[in-house]
Amino acid sequence: MTVGRALFQLLVFPGLLYAVPVAWLMLWMERKLTARLQGRIGPPFYQPFFDFVKLLAKRPLPRPPLQALAMSALPVLAVAGTLGALALLPVFPHSGGFTGDLVLLVALLEIPPLCAVLAGFVSRSIYGELGATREAVLSIAYSLPFLAALVALAAAANSLSLSVISQQAMWQVRLPALLALALCLPVKLRVNPFSVANAEQEIYAGATTEFEGPRLALWELAHGLEWVALTGLWAVLAFPAANAAWPLRAVVFVAISLALVLVLAAVAAATARLKLAQAARVYWLWGSALGVLAMVVAVVWP
């Protein structure tokens, strides 16, 4: 990958310049659709943007220096990690992608949840700690199907390069793997029915309970970017057409991402929040079954 291309991917598409507005768009779509499904008007489309600006402009509360540093650094790290993951998405396939970027992607995608867990403990609030614990338990639960699906795809394509995987994995593996990934999205994005990590009625805002002003703004941004990155990953894997022209690829990528947001929001609106044990069971049972199925097919299929 050339430096120029890497910079383009990090800063323009699907990185910063694309991802931040689309993150706000997705947050708005999710809230707006939820509202419409509940018979309400819902927020205007600029809502997440103004939420972000307003939070940035709030004066942070005084805190002990070390805690203040940690509480500022963690959301920055989460934003940076997600942006990095976004830059790796091979929306436009190319020969230059370095092999093994799949591993890097998985690692980068794990940064925001990890930061959230740390944030919960650093904030020294009992609800933050509870949220962090739940986040940690859930991440163990969904990691198995999530990783199994990606490994199955890698095995099917016989490569650890995302670009190659998105082009070459066969549909017999891709289908169960995509289902397993789709199952992991609600919990990674903390929406119903797997929103137990930030269940407001139980533990306030979970890990971010104690965050205020600019620090919270960064968390909101990181959350939006996670939406873009995870739906983007799914879109890349679901649309392999290698010889489509680049504008078409970009349009299809965006369309699939946004459609996925709508589906997730509709599912969230139609369900109650499952308890921690129930959510974990879904992942251990159904998620793992799908992941293992994908793996078996990837290994056994000639």
């Binding site: 419409r36 499904l37 309400r40 008007i41 609106a269 139609a270 369900t271």
Partner: peptide
Amino acid sequence: NILGLISRNFRRDPATYRY
């Protein structure tokens, strides 16, 4: 059921008074 409920809400105009 809930799917019927949300699809009905979606088809109808929102019940909200616009401020």
